[in-house]
Design a protein around this nucleic acid. Sequence first.
RNA 1: GCGGGCGUGGUGGAACUGGCCAGACACACGACCCUUAAAAGGUCGCGGGGCACCGCCCCAUGUGGGUUCGAAUCCCACCGCCCGCACCA
Length: 844
Amino acid sequence: MSTEMVPAAADAAQRYDPLTLEPPIARRWFEERTYSIPNHAAGRAIVGEGADEEAEGQGRYYALTMFPYPSGDLHMGHAEIFSIHDALVRHARMTGKAVLNPIGWDSFGLPAENAARRRGADPREWTYRNIEEQRASIVRLGCSFDWDRVVHTSDPEYYRWTQWIFLQLYRAGLAYRAEALVNWCPNDRTVLANEQVVDGRCERCDAVVVRRPLTQWFFRITRYAQQLLDDLDQLEDAWPERVRVMQRNWIGRSDGAEVVFTVAGSGEDVVVFTTRPDTLYGATYFVFAPEHPLVRRKMAGDPAYDGFLEEVAHRSEIERLSTDLQGKRGVRLGFDMLNPVNGERIPAYAADYVLMEYGTGAIMAVPAHDQRDFEFARQQGLPVRVVVQPADGAPLDAATMSAAYAGDGTTVNSGPYDGLVWQETKRRITDDLAARGLGRHRVNFRLRDWLISRQRYWGAPIPIVHCEDCGEVPVPDDQLPVRLPPDVDFTVEGNPLEHHDGFVRVDCPACQRPARRDTDTMDTFVDSSWYYLRYLSPNDDTRAWDREGVDRWLPVDQYTGGVEHAILHLLYSRFLCKALRDLGHLDVDEPFRRLLNQGQVIMAGAAMSKSRGNLVVPGGVYERYGADTLRATMLFSGPPEADIDWADVSPEGIHRWLTRVWRLILEHVAQDSADAGSDEQVLALRKATHRAVAGASADYDAFKFNTAIAKMMELSNTIAAARRDGLAGTPVREAIEALLQLMAPIACFLTEELWARLGHDGSVHATTWPKADPALLVEEDVDIVVQVDGKVRDRVRVPSGADDASVEAAARAARNVARHLEGREVVSRVVVPDRLINLVTRPA
RNA sequence: GCGGGCGUGGUGGAACUGGCCAGACACACGACCCUUAAAAGGUCGCGGGGCACCGCCCCAUGUGGGUUCGAAUCCCACCGCCCGCACCA
């Protein structure tokens, strides 16, 4: 369509019309699989130089973007992610790298099932229709994905291997079934994920969610807690600081001690975890979690305790949140505890501010030095004993203090440890207890095991059979996948799989007798924590991934996605990578070498959402301005990490610029047949071009697309001005070609078309990234800022590299400088070569 | 409460490791040109104040201090905003 012969004048007058220009190109890239790449591909630049193995590895670039969830059509947030990702991908490709750039869909999950429930339809239909719609939008946006590697996590060909991974972990003891307190919606009669509980209520029906013990499947992520923490250091400067901090906090390592207390009279041992063993002498009472098994046993039948337990069990999440730090509730238990350091007898309580899930479910309470203990003590009239005195400030007085003191200081009231600095006390007390067998140094993590089972239909079935004789029996690998039955009844309450006899009834794989299939499906985060591996052999039905491909491409060089996955998805993926490494299936410690968190697209300060009615979809912008304008608008609005408020953004400026570039180039093609212009003009344009190339290249490397675009705008303005001043022919053409190459990763369609109009056969995207000529970047003369006493007073033009003395001479000669030096004596000078000179004076 | 981050024109944002009179590049706005008119396009102006106004001076990067020849950038305190975690022992 671009090579049609038309009179030059008519051609130059042709309007920039992205709506007819873009779709055919987009379609061609999709249909011809232009950006597909084989596993053994090597970088173009490298191949030409016959490089060694290491260099060959550097030529490969695995670019990954978080695959979308198919909830309806794309929104502006997607448009931003894909604009950023595609720009960096296209740039990487032009610099000669072999880029693996796959896409897929995270297509299991609750919304599909809910849609199915509402309409009695099959979740497949809803899911795959949405995928098709999104795919079309992504293609329309010009994204250069490898369409030969598409995966959907809901395809049996995919979840077969999710199940295989489950079994790998199961056999290694990393997957297990146990009872746990989970979120239960009494209205929907189902378990909810934490993410599905909003402010203590079910996100679907708004019922108040309660905690309920159920037998669930877990992945033993806690076994990797220390590694997950340690290896964050490998990601320094490569992952955003805040993501690493969030993961570190989530893992939550705390160093302290285990201390053994004894039940007075019975001699039963109860272990507590504390980070402050130095305050043991300050323990004035003892607290158990309400559900602590020892308390249940000892207090069974006690009306006060039973009543309290009942009350706590029925407390909803929402109440727990609202009572927060005030109203701690507890009951005095009918026994006392003995403190191992001094044998002191202290009263035992059960209170809801101690959690069964953290530490050992029991604590020693030191009200003087822990705020929660302090509040509970004041409430119950329990004694407060100061055992740490701050180094400076007024000494603490237990009778009058209004808050706990958790800071550092000197140990007091602690027998043999008095006078020691608290850290020293901490160490010694722990050592001494250890010597007596009553304690030890101990590290505790906040991280809990990953609860992966869901009582849901639309997920990967857990490949386990429950047999009365054999117990839990894994489904043999050659019988995978355990398929989701298509004919389920969504009108039943709870998990439809439980009500599907054909699914549930199965022969035990071990003894062949009738058994029962596990009806839980896996959390969708399991699906998404390994998809980057499946991209390496998406169609291989003999194994989960191509080991050779994995070794060649991993780790992912660049991962782009939203910060909302800072913990869950990224932590799970890191865990699974390490587990699979230890099982011998791959050979990297960390899956994602670099991470870029793009900002969110918001609307007038608020998140876009359907319920707010402020959802903006790309469709409107496509129809008005086209995809290039949308892409460039997203990238020009600010740095990629920053949020974009669509209310502040206007695509019009970008559209005007693209139109100017279009016109500039068409006019050049039509008119600039012969070279024209002075040597000075030619040199000036060449310098401007190479400055833009150097600057924009650096910006691309740093993903600063907004400033890169600013430099391209400057260049296009310079070219236009040069043409107006009479420059024509080859020098203009050179500048134009560089401009198009710089713009190609951003305005992929416009540049493709104009490149062809310039008479090139191939694609602009297949060209090699322009290189700035260093000789054209240096100026013979430079402007030097002249300061007098730190204030800028003038500028002088001197030869580049001029020595300090001659710069000073030139500076003193400058008119405005001379005025300011009048009556003053220069006592020193500071020179920044080729940039500035500062003359420091005093009155003469 | 703990942790992380951010405050620059009317707006989005620039300013490499402290150094080119802070404000690139745009948006919006204003004036003018083109036009019968509008749209589109083009040119110019655009932080505040001042003057002996072809040029120069003063103030200005949330506020107040400090370090430095020199601070949007580094340090301290305060004010404001955003995000994460939150009875974690």
